[in-house]
Simulated assay, not measured.
Amino acid sequence: MLTLSLLAVGCASAPLDQVGSLQSYDELKPSDSLLARSLMRVSKDDVLAAKTVRIIPTGFSRPAAGKSTLSQAQRSLVTNAVDRALCSGLSQRFRVVDLTEPADLTAHAMVTHVTPTNALAVGVSKVASTAVSVALPDMRVPVPRLPIGLGSLSLEAEAIGDNGKQAAAMIWGRGANALLDSGRGARPGDPYNLAAKFGDDFSKLLVTGKTPLNKLPSLPTRAELRAMFGGGPKYPACKAFGKSPGLVGFLGDRMGLPPAWTDKGAAVRDD
Rank of each mutant, 00 (worst) to 15 (best):
I160Q: 10
P57I: 13
R187Y: 05
A195W: 09
G161M: 11
L155E: 06
C238S: 09
D46R: 15
G199H: 08
P63D: 00
E101L: 04
K264C: 00
Y192L: 08
P220R: 06
A49I: 08
N177F: 01
P220F: 01
V132T: 11
P259I: 11
C11D: 03
V134Q: 10
D98W: 03
R184N: 09
P137L: 11
V122F: 02
A223I: 01
P233I: 11
R41S: 08
T58C: 14
D181A: 14
A260K: 07
R269N: 07
R84T: 09
Y25V: 03
T115R: 15
V47P: 13
A186S: 15
L48W: 02
R93M: 03
S5N: 01
P116H: 13
T69C: 06
N177I: 00
L39K: 01
D270F: 06
A109L: 09
L2A: 13
A49M: 09
T130A: 11
A176M: 06
L34D: 00
P116E: 15
R37W: 00
T100V: 12
C87R: 04
D253Q: 13
A107Y: 14
A169E: 05
A8G: 03
V114H: 07
T130R: 14
S125I: 02
D46E: 14
A107C: 12
V19F: 04
G265S: 09
A107P: 02
D83Y: 06
G89F: 00
G164E: 11
